[in-house]
Structures are given as C-alpha cells and as structure tokens.
Computed example of a mutant assay.
Amino acid sequence: MVGGRRMTSVPAIRVDLVNAGADWVDEEVVVDAGLVTSRTPRDLPAFNKKMVEEIMEGVHAGYR
C-alpha cells in the first residue's frame, strides 16, 4: 500500500507509484514512517545510512 506515502524510485516506475497514490519525489533517499526508498545504486550509501538510523529508532508509533 503506497497511497499517501512519500516515496522516491527510479524514474521508470514513477507513474506507477503516482497512480497507486504515492507522493513521488526525486530525492536521494526518502523516509515515510519507517519506509525507506531510494532511486538507484548510486544512492546506496545514503540509503544504507538511513536504514541503520530507522532500525535503531525501532517501531514507529501507529505501525507494527
């Protein structure tokens, strides 16, 4: 379910995500209530850093 979620991705699936209700942005890494998305392998260092931060934070309020 991506409806209402802020996300990024490779440009090739942007339209699919928007059609599914996502708020798509062209950024290196995007976090929405623990969901971490990025665009391409070039973004892996930022993605990995953010994943570690999110794991350290634990479960977000309202999500399980």
Rank of each mutant, 00 (worst) to 15 (best):
D23C: 01
A61S: 14
V10Q: 12
R14D: 01
T40Y: 10
L44M: 14
I13D: 09
A46K: 10
K49Q: 15
P41M: 09
L17E: 04
E53P: 07
R5G: 02
V52P: 06
A61R: 15
M56Q: 14
D16E: 15
M51T: 11
S9V: 09
P41Q: 12
V15Y: 08
E54S: 04
A61D: 13
N19A: 13
G58P: 13
T40D: 14
E57W: 08
N48E: 10
A20F: 01
E27D: 11
S9L: 07
R5T: 08
A20T: 03
G62N: 10
S9P: 09
V2F: 02
M7P: 05
V25R: 09
P45I: 05
Y63D: 05
L17P: 06
D43N: 12
Y63F: 14
D23Q: 13
V2Q: 00
I13Q: 05
G34E: 05
N48H: 12
A46E: 09
V59M: 11
I13S: 01
P11L: 15
A61F: 10
A12T: 08
R64N: 14
D23S: 02
D32T: 02
K49T: 13
V30H: 05
T40M: 15
A22R: 00
D26P: 04
V18C: 06
D23A: 06
G4A: 01
G62W: 08
R14T: 06
R42A: 15
E28C: 09
K50F: 05
S9A: 14
E53F: 13
P45M: 05
R6G: 01
G62Y: 07
D43E: 01
G21K: 02
N19F: 07
M1N: 11
I55Y: 09
E54P: 07
D32N: 11
L44V: 14
T37H: 01
V30E: 00
P11W: 13
E27R: 15
G21P: 06
V18A: 09
R6F: 03
M1F: 12
D23E: 06
V18W: 05
I13A: 02
M56H: 11
A20L: 13
A12D: 09
W24M: 03
G21R: 04
K50N: 02
